[in-house]
């Protein structure tokens, strides 16, 4: 039953609503082009660049911010955009599905727990698809631009992003570490897991407050993550510039994975308890 329900959710909430994901394709193309412009303005050619470089650049975020009266805080535009979008995309389907014939589905499923777990799995699948699209578009860009599909990060990109973003006067106690060139887990696993955890947290909150206000809380967590370098603010784990592979006091990948898993499990369990007690009334989230 669970697999059938998940298949139904994927068909209804992902495949039949594919148009939204075209925005992701457009933004991915945009940041690939931005990378090319910035890279070629620093270095003469793209010969040293790689697939991993572009992903490193896209999820670079910002280095640690320490309050200074003469240095205004500026949130990283691309990083925020890339992480706020999936939060918006996964926001309404689970609740929209409780309207109209979604109620029939819930009754057919027979158990609230199964319905909730399927929505959690759907959320994870959606976020994974979102990141897969980003990686796929970047890969296509690399093929077109004849950039190697390697995940090795070049010293040039490290210099362009991490060293340029790093300011010893403002970046607290951390210092740049000797860069090893690879950070596959940080680039391809941690952002996905962290965003799945945040999306599940948002879905759980939507049961308690409304989806819109839970979205504001998610955005608050992301903005606070940029402001404070704190491992408990999950957005920190999605910034390559704040990884301990880049900066000495940076985020540890293992801690990031562990925190994400804890947050996901907590959200799933609490959401399940809340949903078991929820009356399915008609909240007209979307009228047909």
């Amino acid at each position: 039953m669970f697999c059938r329900l998940l298949r139904y959710d994927i068909r209804k909430g992902l495949i039949s609503d594919y148009k939204k994901l075209l925005i992701v394709v457009a933004i991915s193309v945009a940041f690939c082009i931005q990378f090319r412009w910035e890279y070629t303005s620093h270095f003469s050619s793209l010969s040293e660049a790689s697939f991993g470089d572009i992903i490193f650049f896209a999820f670079s975020g910002m280095s640690e911010y320490t309050f200074s009266p003469d240095q205004p805080f500026l949130f990283p535009a691309l990083w925020v955009l890339l992480l706020v979008l999936p939060m918006f995309f996964v926001l309404y389907y689970p609740f929209y599905d409780l309207l109209g014939f979604g109620k029939n589905v819930l009754i057919q499923v027979g158990r609230r727990r199964t319905w909730w777990l399927s929505k959690c799995a759907w959320t994870a699948v959606y976020i994974m698809t979102y990141f897969l699209i980003i990686y796929a578009v970047t890969a296509v860009f690399c093929i077109v631009m004849r950039i190697p599909l390697s995940t090795q990060i070049s010293g040039e990109t490290h210099e362009m992003v991490a060293m340029k973003g790093y300011n010893p006067m403002l970046n607290g106690e951390g210092h740049l570490v000797e860069f090893m060139g690879r950070m596959d887990l940080q680039l391809f696993v941690l952002p996905v897991i962290s965003m799945v955890a945040l999306a599940l947290f948002q879905m759980m909150l939507s049961l308690i407050v409304s989806p819109i206000y839970s979205f504001i809380i998610s955005v608050g967590i992301l903005i606070s993550s940029a402001y404070y370098m704190n491992p408990f603010l999950i957005g920190n784990h999605c910034m390559t510039q704040r990884s301990n592979l880049v900066v000495s006091n940076g985020m540890d990948i293992k801690n990031g994975v562990l925190l994400s898993l804890c947050m996901a499990v907590f959200s799933i369990v609490l959401g399940m308890i809340a949903f078991n007690r929820t009356d399915v009334l008609s909240q007209p989230l979307r009228d047909e």
């Binding site: 309207l99 109209g100 014939f101 979604g102 109620k103 029939n104 819930l106 009754i107 057919q108 499923v109 027979g110 158990r111 609230r112 727990r113 008609s282 979307r286 009228d287 047909e288």
Partner: peptide
């Protein structure tokens, strides 16, 4: 949690 076999039409259908 729910009846084993139940068909439902509540308010306006939404597909």
């Amino acid at each position: 949690s729910f009846p084993d076999s139940c068909g439902l039409l509540l308010e306006n259908p939404a597909f």
